[in-house]
């Protein structure tokens, strides 16, 4: 929802704190769930992520979530899906070149980032997304990546 998405950017600091608190818990829970159920619950988990992030950020489920590095403004709402924006076409009033009724996602992103504790995260380069991940859950990806990292560490130890 557009208005809620804009609210999330204006409250990027709060959203960042929330993310930092809640995210580890979500990942630990998901790690447990995936260990017990394997991939059986992937669909409802993905739907839950899409629902929650869709509501708050108009999340497009690119599968490579960068919200914490883009001032809580989802870059996939940019009509050019620019991951390191903005482009040079932003209107003088800060609105999108392609959709004149929408605030430029990246004007919002730099604004949101300036409110965040880690306001420099936006300055690092995000490489183009892997399109195979579209529609997949970033949470599950992180939970499973964590697993692989832990497994590797365990093997190394």
């Amino acid at each position: 929802m557009y208005s809620l998405r804009r609210w999330s950017v204006r409250h990027a600091r709060f959203m960042e704190a929330l993310y930092n608190t809640v995210n580890p818990a979500i990942l630990v829970t998901l790690r447990g769930i995936t260990k017990v159920f394997g991939t059986k619950l992937d669909k409802p988990i993905t739907a839950a992520e899409a629902g929650l992030k869709g509501l708050l950020f108009d999340c497009q489920m690119c599968g490579s979530c960068a919200l914490s590095k883009t001032g809580m403004s989802c870059p996939m709402n940019c009509p050019k899906t620019i991951r390191n924006g903005p482009c040079g076409g932003v209107r003088p009033n800060g609105m999108c070149e392609v959709k004149p009724d929408m605030k430029c996602v990246w004007v919002d992103a730099w604004d949101g980032a300036s409110r965040m504790k880690n306001s420099d995260a936006i300055k690092s380069i995000e490489f183009a997304v892997d399109h195979r991940d579209k529609g997949r859950s970033t949470w599950l990806k992180l939970a499973r990546e964590g697993e692989t990292v832990n497994d590797k560490e365990a093997t190394n130890a």
Binding site: P79, K80, T81, R83, N84, C87, E97, V98, I125, A128
Partner: peptide, 27 residues
């Protein structure tokens, strides 16, 4: 370059690709 959106041109019905942005392209 990122490029202008397709809507700015004479083929607004075209599919915009934007697999890259200018920074990913540069890299």
């Amino acid at each position: 370059l990122s490029g202008d959106g397709v809507g700015a041109g004479d083929h607004p019905e075209a599919k915009p690709v934007f697999d890259f942005d200018s920074i990913s392209l540069t890299r």
